[in-house]
Write a protein that binds this DNA or RNA. Structure first.
Length: 495
RNA sequence: GGCGGCAUGGCCAAGUGGUAAGGCAGAGGACUGCAAAUCCUUUAUCCCCGGUUCGAAUCCGGGUGCCGCCUCCA
């Protein structure tokens, strides 16, 4: 039996108990990308949040049908294609490739279905035909409009009232300013398909109604997307689907908050401060972004700035280090015996470790509170490190930290964090951060070797001199009982 | 103008009735050849005013500020 959970529903503006349409199954549809450019770190938040959410649902034994679409027929794509002299559908196809590359690098699982508009024209035409037949839509010179006044519940998601909407430019052919296009008559040079209303292409909103119907059904358990899609996109989807099918479209509307710039405004091309995912991934391990996203609640705005990723990397490094400390512990006595002899710090790790999974479930089952979950994980990390300071912890502490290690594994399954070995993580950090700084690894390692020799000769002056040179390259040296290691310093300057 | 949301320590942030998780940064200490990492210590009139309550960051009313949407947007 899958575990029950609670989720905020934009429709009711409340956290609600989740009730599936079909027992044990969650059908979730998330608005994907309009593919005419590389995705930026703001888009990636939505992708990561819903990936983590679906991952968690499956971890909690739900059967999930996860659908995320591609808008590959659209005004912006056509515009961009004309600018670069390419075929629009081919251009979109190219950026779908880039999308898959970026999203795979981010560690996302593939959805069960990734419908494309260009491959869903029949279903779209069929749905529009229904709407026309039922009197919810009308045709005018090859363009089909949805008649908003035929759907009295219009506005129930966004709270918008049709009369109050701004409608700056008058569009010819519409009966009412709030009406929106279901089918756009072909203009010369546009990609177009045949339809009962002549050649043309779908409007933006109808695709999601048609594709979700095909891949999930009339009533979706959950429909996700960015908060900026609530109006008009999701409002229009409701109008289309409920008018066409005569059934409730979506039980739970789940919207992620937006990435905001330091100024408080959202990231967008018009602001000229867009960071592409592939650029971020060149400089930081993928889990850095995942932690950055999941450290805040998914509905909150998430501030972006030059410190965002370095800070997240510092956090991630802390978690990996704590896990490594736990992994390094051995011993085969019963945990109880070790706790008895090593005292309160051992007891604390044991208690936090054994209770972690329950606390994680409680947090994530309550509107997917990843921030709280990570708070618990950091508490566990600190307790682990504290315990690791005991002289006898390394030899005897293994049984005491076993639940903590299990907790880390659980987080990995549930949220897709801490999925690497410490060695792989450390190495990826070195490669990417050195690359970002333009420092050669060979150079660092030869300098470090020279310093080790100087230290063995107790030539502290020379050792300190080399350390200063390394620091000038943003390399921090760490001397340990078993040898010297190094890492790249994280700071604003380093990003 | 309309609709929706937010306001918690230097910064980020969790927390919806019983006197504030966590992270980053700073300061002091332990450790270290010196450092780094780690650990310990340390910083909160929870935007303002009023109300409900034995008790409110948490509920209600008013105010102020910020953000999103109303045009494409994750």
């Amino acid at each position: 039996m899958p575990a029950n959970f609670r989720i905020y529903n934009t429709l009711s503006r409340q956290v609600e108990d989740f009730q599936p349409v079909e027992a044990g199954h969650v059908g979730i549809y998330v608005c994907g990308m309009t593919v005419y450019d590389h995705i930026h770190v703001g888009h990636a938040r939505a992708m990561v949040v819903f990936d983590a959410f679906v991952r968690y649902l499956r971890y909690r034994d739900w059967r999930v049908t996860f659908v995320r679409n591609f808008t590959d027929v659209d005004d912006k794509i056509i515009k961009r294609a004309n600018e670069v002299g390419k075929d629009p559908v081919a251009l979109a196809s190219e950026f779908i490739g880039h999308f898959h590359h970026d999203v795979t690098a981010l560690g996302l699982a593939m959805p069960d279905h990734e419908p494309k508009v260009s491959e869903s024209i029949d279903a779209i035409v069929e749905m529009i035909s229904h709407l026309v037949a039922k009197g919810h839509a009308y045709e005018n010179e090859g363009t089909v409009w949805y008649s908003v006044e035929t759907f009295p519940e219009y506005g129930k998601l966004s709270g918008q009232k049709v009369d109050e909407l701004r409608s700056p430019d008058e569009v010819p052919g519409k009966r009412s300013p709030a009406d929106f296009a279901l089918w756009k008559a072909a203009k010369p040079g546009d990609p177009s398909w045949d339809s009962p209303w002549g050649p043309g292409r779908p409007g933006w909103h109808i695709e999601c109604s048609a594709m979700s119907l095909g891949d999930i059904g009339q009533t979706l358990d959950i429909h996700g997307g960015g908060l900026d899609l609530v109006f008009p996109h999701h409002e229009n989807e409701i109008a289309q689907s409920e008018a066409a099918n005569g059934t409730k479209y979506v039980n739970y509307w789940m919207h992620n908050g937006l990435l905001t710039m330091a100024s408080g405004q959202k990231m967008g091309k018009s602001l000229g401060n867009v960071i592409n995912v592939r650029d971020a991934l060149a400089d930081f391990p993928a889990e850095t972004l995942r932690l950055y996203y999941l450290q805040n609640h998914y509905r909150s705005p998430l501030p972006w700035g030059p410190e965002a990723l370095p800070e997240a990397l510092a956090m991630l490094g802390r978690l990996y280090e704590a896990r490594e400390n736990a992994e390094a512990m051995g011993g085969s006595e019963p945990a109880e015996q070790v706790i008895q002899s090593l005292g309160a710090d051992a007891e604390r790790v044991w208690e936090l470790g054994t209770s972690f999974i329950e606390r994680m479930h409680a947090s994530l089952d309550n509107d997917f509170n990843t921030a709280q979950t990570l708070g618990h994980l950091f508490e566990l990390a600190r307790a682990t490190n504290r315990f690791a300071n005991h002289k006898k912890a390394k030899k005897r502490g293994g049984p005491v930290v076993a639940p903590a290690l299990a907790a880390f594994a659980e987080v990995s399954h549930a949220l897709g964090l801490m999925g690497m070995t410490t060695a792989a993580f450390t190495d990826e950090v070195k490669v990417k951060r050195l690359g970002a700084l333009g420092v050669s690894r060979e150079e660092v390692e030869s300098m470090l070797a020279e310093r080790v020799a100087a230290r063995e000769a107790k030539d502290w002056a020379r050792a300190d001199e080399i350390r200063a040179e390394l620091e000038a390259r943003s390399i921090v040296v760490m001397d340990r009982p078993d040898g010297s290691d190094w890492k790249v310093r994280l700071s604003a300057a380093a990003s």
